[in-house]
Every structure is written in structure tokens, then in C-alpha cells.
């Protein structure tokens, strides 16, 4: 495969990801504000098509929310204020990244807990395995028994 074919394949593969739901009439004139709006939109969940952010959703409500985000930005809100504005109306559900608070402790802490728990089990298992290997030599009693058995064996065959 030559270099040109490869780059063509890469470009075609990337193409679908550049498709946008943001319509031309929504885009703000100020590129800095527009960039912020895009970032905020990526963190907000569309309430109709629930596993999509509003930045890439074609749903009517998603469009309304995109326009709202831009309107708040133009009005001078900070990013956090815009997100809070939407959150106040749609709840934590619209945040694609759930906030860290008592109701979500289980969500955030379970992976860490499970990792610690698993590490603990691994350590316990490895330790007990090592203990079993400690018996490299027979005890004196065993040595005597084995010697006796060997002697009996020799006496029997000879």
C-alpha cells in the first residue's frame, strides 16, 4: 500500500467524525465564544437521544439548548454559569460527566474500591503461595523415615 492510498483511507475514515449537527445559523460571529459554546455543548447531554451530547445531536430540543448556550455566553455568562443554567432546568442528568457528591459517591468510588479489593486479593493469594514453597528441605524426622525406607528397599532387593 503506498503512501497516497493510506492517507486517502485515513482521511475517509475521519470524515464521518467531522459531520456536525451545529447548523450555520447557530454559529456565533465571535470565534472565541463559539469555541467555548462548542466545548460546553460537548458536556451537555441531549434529553431526547440520551447518549449523545447536544453538540452532535439533530434533535429539536438539542438545537434549542445549543442556541440557549450561545445566548447565555453572549450575555456574558462564564462557562460554569451556562452549565449551571441548564442543570437548574434539566437536572444532573444533562451533564455527561456526573458531579462528585454524596448521591454519586458509589458511582465514583466503586472502581477505586474494586481495584483496591482486587489488589488485596492478589497480594493475599501470592503470599500464601510463597509460604507453601518454603518447605525446601525435609525435617529431621522425615529425613529419618526416608532413610529407613531407603535402607529397607536396599535390604529387600539385595
Amino acid at each position: 500500500m503506498n503512501w497516497k492510498t493510506l492517507s486517502a483511507i485515513v482521511m475517509l475514515a475521519v470524515l464521518p467524525f467531522t459531520a456536525l449537527a451545529v447548523e450555520p445559523d447557530e454559529i456565533l460571529a465571535d470565534p472565541a465564544l463559539e469555541a467555548r459554546a462548542r466545548e460546553i455543548s460537548k458536556d451537555l447531554r441531549c434529553v431526547v437521544c440520551q447518549n449523545q451530547d447536544i453538540d452532535s445531536s439533530n434533535a429539536g430540543v438539542a438545537r434549542d439548548l445549543r442556541l440557549l448556550v450561545r445566548e447565555r455566553l453572549v450575555a456574558g455568562d462564564t462557562d460554569a454559569e451556562v452549565i449551571e443554567f441548564v442543570r437548574a432546568r434539566y437536572g444532573d442528568f444533562v451533564l455527561l460527566k456526573p458531579p462528585f457528591k454524596p448521591e454519586t459517591y458509589a458511582l465514583w468510588l466503586t472502581p477505586a474500591f474494586l481495584a483496591l479489593f482486587g489488589t488485596g486479593i492478589v497480594i493475599v493469594v501470592l503470599r500464601s503461595g510463597r509460604k507453601r514453597q518454603v518447605a525446601e528441605r525435609l525435617s529431621d524426622d522425615d529425613e529419618r523415615v526416608v532413610a529407613g525406607m531407603l535402607a529397607a528397599e536396599k535390604g529387600g532387593t539385595a
Binding site: V47, V48, G60, V61, D64, L65, L68, R89, Y90, G91
Partner: peptide, 13 residues
Amino acid sequence: LDGRAGIEWGLSG
């Protein structure tokens, strides 16, 4: 008309 009250109500459809 523009669905802004809908957003205030947390409307999804």
C-alpha cells in the same frame, strides 16, 4: 413559539 418556556419546564418533547 420558540420553545423557551419549554426549556424552563425541562421539556424533552
